[in-house]
């Protein structure tokens, strides 16, 4: 569904992506892992067209996407930091995104699920971080997109919301979608990810299942396996 060829991106003097190649053909849940500053968010934002790479090609569903915008109607994206216009009410924000996308949506169910009904007529500036993240999740999951990208989806969520989030992700997977998740919480990766894409120094260092990374590093525990790779490269 996604194909990336020789992607280069630097911000000033800092090279973030250095000839990254990635092809994802199957469906399911892919965890994008890597140390801080390894280029996870840059990769995601390049796919979305928010970051403009210096070199390389990106294909989504067989079509080159750089410089285009309409392909995004088939992508749902959960950004890392949930920050919205402070003077809009939650209801208005949801209506606005619906209005912009012009697609059918199932926000009602999600609003009930995350119990954000009491906040619908509150201004976004008055909400707590966790509540904002729940609104963010509602906005992401309310559309029926083939690709769902979640950048640190667990930030600020309470345990109950976290359980619902995991269920939602599994549900979308069952519908045959591709879900890309970045996170630093290895427990979540172990629990949900079908495959791991590990980014290091602007390239794909490893791509495979959780079991494969465990046998490669000789560690049973994913957290230690990842830490092992990192220690090797720091040394």
């Amino acid at each position: 569904m996604i194909k990336i060829e020789q992607l280069y991106k630097s911000f000033g003097k800092v090279d973030v992506l250095e000839g990254l190649d990635l092809e994802i053909t199957d469906k399911g849940i892919f965890a994008i892992l890597g140390p801080n500053g390894s280029g996870k968010t840059t990769l995601i934002k390049s796919i979305l067209g928010m970051v403009i790479p210096q070199k390389g090609k990106i294909y989504f569903q067989g079509e080159p996407v750089m410089g285009k915008w309409d392909y995004r109607s088939n992508i749902s994206y959960l950004p890392q930091i949930a920050q919205f216009p402070v003077n809009l009410k939650v209801r208005e924000l949801i209506e606005m995104i619906k209005n912009i996308r012009g697609q059918s949506s199932n926000e009602k169910r999600l609003i009930d699920l995350f119990k954000v009904q009491p906040f619908m007529d509150k201004k976004l500036g008055t909400l707590s971080g966790g509540t904002k993240q729940k609104i963010n999740l509602v906005l992401t999951f309310m559309f029926d997109s083939d690709l769902i990208i979640l950048d640190e989806p667990t930030t600020g969520l309470d345990p109950v919301a976290l359980i619902y989030l995991k269920e939602l992700i599994q549900e979308e997977k069952a519908k045959g979608k591709l879900i890309l998740v970045t996170t630093h919480i290895m427990k979540l990766v172990e629990e949900i990810a079908d495959k791991i894409v590990f980014i290091l120094d602007g390239k794909i260092y490893f791509e495979g299942t959780v079991n494969e990374i465990q046998s490669k590093t000789g560690e049973d525990d994913l957290e230690h396996a990842i830490a092992n790779i990192l220690k090797e490269t720091y040394a």
Binding site: M50, R72, P79, I100
Partner: peptide, 17 residues
């Protein structure tokens, strides 16, 4: 500057820059 994050939200939608 105030609407920067909101702009990012819009940029992820099917809209021209």
């Amino acid at each position: 500057y105030d609407s920067r994050e909101f702009t990012e939200l819009l940029l992820a939608q099917p809209l021209k820059r």
